[in-house]
């Protein structure tokens, strides 16, 4: 049963220090292996915090978070960081790239923190640079003039594709994309998501895609309204009921 679910949340509650009501109160959420899940919600309601918890960057929740059948709670901070390096690829909304590294270095940087991903990249293309080039080519970034530009001179769309290549290198099991297309124009958006789908499918990667843009919803096989699964107010009421 559990092996079907690559991510499993149960009775998850989380509040930042000093917050009286929890930011997150999720009864349950399961993500199946290989699934492409779209989570929609306005900004500032805790989506990024949820992603941080799943990726093990943030800790301090109550309830269950299982990733790849392993409970993150049981892991030390260092072990969570290693786990994230091995099993997660992450794409942010913007500023994904380290400005002083080249395009290739930005992509292969993911292998610097994970031996597992480095090995997988080498197994695939012989070395990490060739694997980076292969992924960039798949993401329509084969043009050498683009690859040799300083990353700060790339367009937003190009930057996001470099970030996608970095998230995909070494085939991590889970790809988390937090508003990756919000700074692109509409037709670029669809193209970017298509590329992402193709790569995820090839590598069998599970995609957790978060956005406020309901227009993208149709592209995904499953979509969730963040507000539906997260009920911080209910949590508060339940607390009050329990106290009274």
């Amino acid at each position: 049963m559990q092996s079907d679910h690559i991510i499993r949340l149960e009775k998850l509650r989380f509040a930042w220090d000093g917050q009286s009501t929890p930011l997150l109160n999720i009864t349950s959420l399961d993500v199946a292996r290989g699934e492409r899940l779209f989570v929609r919600g306005a900004s500032g309601i805790g989506k990024s915090t949820l992603l941080g918890l799943i990726a093990g960057v943030i800790a301090g929740q109550s309830g269950v978070i299982e990733v790849l059948g392993q409970s993150l709670d049981a892991k030390s901070a260092a072990a969570r960081d290693r786990f994230r390096a091995d099993h997660f690829g992450i794409i942010f909304q913007q500023f994904n790239l380290i400005p002083y590294l080249s395009v290739i270095e930005n992509v292969t940087l993911a292998c610097e923190f994970s031996d597992a991903r480095r090995r997988k990249a080498i197994a695939r293309s012989g070395n990490t640079t060739d694997e980076a080039l292969r992924l960039l080519e798949h993401l329509d970034m084969a043009d050498t003039s683009v690859i040799h530009k300083p990353v700060t001179e790339l367009s937003v769309g190009q930057q996001q594709r470099v970030a996608a290549a970095r998230a995909l290198i070494g085939s991590p099991e889970i790809l988390i994309a937090d508003e990756p297309t919000s700074s692109m124009d509409a037709d670029r958006r669809a193209a970017f998501i298509e590329l992402l789908f193709r790569e995820c499918e090839q590598a069998g990667t599970t995609l957790l895609f978060v956005s406020h843009d309901a227009g993208l919803q149709g592209l995904f096989e499953r979509a969730i309204e963040f507000d539906r699964i997260n009920r911080p107010a209910n949590g508060e009421q339940q607390d009050l009921q329990q106290v009274s």
Partner: peptide
């Protein structure tokens, strides 16, 4: 700070 958030996402420890 951004740079460090990227590194953290890649698995860098605090």
């Amino acid at each position: 700070r951004r740079e460090m958030a990227i590194l953290r996402a890649l698995g860098a420890r605090p």
